[in-house]
Amino acid sequence: MSDYRVLPGPEHFLPPAAASMGIRLPNPGEAHINGVITSEDKAYEEAARQFLMAKVPTIFPGPLVLWAWNEKAAKKATAVRHLFNTLKECVQSGQKPMLIPMPDYRPKYPKINPEVEINPNHPNLTIWHNKIDCCMFIGVHCHQANLSLKIIRGGTSCYTIAMCAQAGHEDAMLSFRDASVEKLMKLADTIKRLKGTVQPRLTSAKNGVSS
C-alpha cells in the first residue's frame, strides 16, 4: 500500500495524480479518506464532520444533476437541495454554506463569475473568491472532476469530497462511489446527527483529518 496521502494543498503547481502515487479506488460498499480505503459509514461521519467544521462548506453540483436529463437526474437534484438545506440548518453562526453550480465545462476564459459559478478548468478562482475551505463535487463527469480536484489540491487548501456516481476519485480527499439519492440522504442525516458536536474551525483547512 502506498504511503502517499491525499491531503489538502496547496501541494504545488502540478500535484501528481493520486493514482500515479499508488492510491487505489474503493470497491463497492467502501470509500476512501485521504487515499486510505475505509468503510462507507466512516466516510459519512468524516464528510459530515468536515462540512460542520468548515467556515464555508460548499456543494458544487455539476451538469449531471443541474440539467434534468431524466427523472433520475431530477431526483438527485432534489436530494442535493435537501443536503444543502440540511447543512444550512446545522451550521453555526459565522459559517456560510454555499451551493455553487458547474453548469457545463466550457472554459469561458477569461470571463468567469466566481460568485455564481465554478468552472472545471479554473476551479481555484471560485474557491479563492469565496474562501471555500470544504467542498463536495456531485454530478460532474469523472474526467472533469479529476482535473478540477487536482487543480484544487495544487493551488488551494480546500478539503475536497467527491460524491461520485461511478468508481470514486483518488484525487479527492474523501470519496464515495456509486452515488445515489439514498447516499445523499444518508449524508444529510449524518450531518443532522452530528449537529452541535463539532466546533467550526477558525482558519482554513491545513491538515486532512478531523479531530
Binding site: 443541474l66 434534468a68 431530477a74 442535493v80 451551493l99 455553487i100 453548469p103 455564481v116
Partner: peptide
C-alpha cells in the same frame, strides 16, 4: 429536451436560465 432541474433552477447563472 434542454431543461434545468427544478430543485436547482434558482442557483443557475442567469445566462443559462
Amino acid at each position: 429536451r434542454i431543461q434545468i432541474s427544478e430543485a436547482l433552477y434558482d442557483i443557475m447563472p442567469s445566462d443559462y436560465q
